[in-house]
Simulated scan of single mutants.
Amino acid sequence: MTALSRRLVLGGAAAAAAIGGLPLAGGTAQAGPRALREGLDYAVRKLRAVAPGISRFPEETKFEKWIYTDSGGWVGGFWPGLLWLAHLETKDPLFRRLAEESAERLAPRRTDLGTHDLGFLFYPSWVTAYRVTGEREWRDGAIQASDSLIRRYNTKGRFIRAWGNINDPGNAGRVIIDTMMNLDLLFFASKETGDAKYSTIAVEHARTTAKYFLRPDGSTPHVYDFDPATGTPIGPNTVQGYSPTSCWSRGQAWGMYGFTTVYRRTGQREFLDVATKLADHVLPYLRIDPVPIWDYRSPYAPHDIRDSSAGAITACALLDLAKITGNNRYRETAVSVLNAITDTCLTTKSSRAEAIVGRGTRHRGAEGGIEVSLPYGDYYYVEALLRLFRPAELAAAIGL
């Protein structure tokens, strides 16, 4: 029996569809504007209760309690970022102090040559800190992280390599959809320094991703491999998704959000076209089940494990697309997703839960982090709500 099917065999398709009270296919979650406001209030209350006791970086939950990474891993920027969002909502100096303390612990990662996720680490933490406080140390640190990130650029293939140290030949030709989310750090560096080298690399990477990841139907693979010596494309692959031909829902969300952001920074229509194709591909799925399953092409769809974090990221991307294009379908779908997360995924019924949003999935195929809370799930859920309730403050803080 495969790990992927074990849970469905144990509980049956109907049980899998109803995990955590999620509606069966075709059902709708019952919530609304008032519920979303209450969801944001709940997030602030939870952070006010839990955050003062956290001195490391939450990575995921186990038995509803955060487990941590000391270095921050790839997720370290989301905790200080979440605290900055709470500060935007409340203006409470407690959240500002905790956000600054947490962000400062990422300082050693500015020169990290072993990860492509420096945007995830430093944009919600240090770039937001600079925009909120005006203190140049945050700006300078984010630029230093950008200098580290562009060293991963492959000039032959015109892409930023994903995993591994830049001197390690392993994975040297691997590109992943997630990296679209790291590009905004480079646009920030170009804007602040006046040096176009950062944004040029960001644009070239986005064009390479658009060329090789975007399928005719608007879906994407998780990974695309290239020959690192020549830049010659090899073909699609996956680590997080069900297969090289499937559509991992969180990866699709990273792409939607990332390409929309690249359009914001460049004004070049080619990137908006990609973002809308990615969005249009997922709309039919979200009409059936507003909280996405972990891979839209899972053979157990629509009755597979959900990923609330994919839903929260998707909601942010759709709200941004609605703002840019005026297409109300995107906004209506985003609100539907947020309603469903609020109605079925919040941890409100647990007295021991330390996170805000439950029912996240980190790595379904490896049976790792299933039905857990994830720091990026919490972060993007709150970001999406602030897009609705505090759009001006959020725009100033994250550069919308």
Rank of each mutant, 00 (worst) to 15 (best):
V335Q: 05
V335I: 15
S336H: 06
S336C: 08
I324C: 08
I324E: 12
R329N: 14
I324Y: 07
R331N: 04
I324P: 06
D343I: 00
N328Y: 00
T333G: 09
N339V: 01
R331P: 08
K323N: 11
A322M: 01
L338C: 06
A334D: 05
Y330E: 04
V335E: 14
L338P: 05
T347E: 07
T348K: 12
I324D: 05
T347K: 04
N328G: 03
Y330H: 05
K323F: 05
N327R: 12
K323C: 02
A340E: 02
D320W: 13
I324H: 05
D320T: 11
T344N: 12
T344M: 01
G326D: 11
C345A: 15
K349T: 13
K349W: 07
T344A: 10
T342Y: 03
I341S: 01
K323P: 00
T348P: 00
T325D: 08
R329Y: 04
D343P: 00
V337K: 03
R331G: 08
A322K: 00
R329V: 09
G326W: 12
G326M: 11
V335W: 03
A334L: 08
A334I: 08
L321Y: 02
L338I: 08
D320R: 15
R331T: 10
V337A: 07
L346Y: 10
D343K: 11
T348N: 02
K323R: 15
A322P: 01
K349G: 14
D343Q: 10
D320A: 12
T347W: 01
E332T: 10
K323L: 11
T347H: 07
K349L: 13
L338K: 06
L338D: 02
T325A: 10
T348F: 01
T344V: 12
N327V: 12
D320K: 14
G326A: 11
V337C: 08
V335G: 08
R331S: 12
D343W: 00
C345G: 06
I341E: 02
I341R: 04
R329K: 13
L346W: 06
G326C: 10
K323G: 14
K349S: 13
T342I: 01
I324T: 11
L321Q: 01
I324L: 14
A334Y: 07
I324F: 03
D320S: 13
L346C: 02
N339F: 12
N339K: 11
S336G: 15
G326P: 10
V337R: 06
C345L: 02
A322Y: 01
E332Y: 00
D320H: 13
A322G: 15
I324V: 15
Y330L: 01
L346K: 02
L346R: 05
A334S: 08
T347Q: 11
N339D: 14
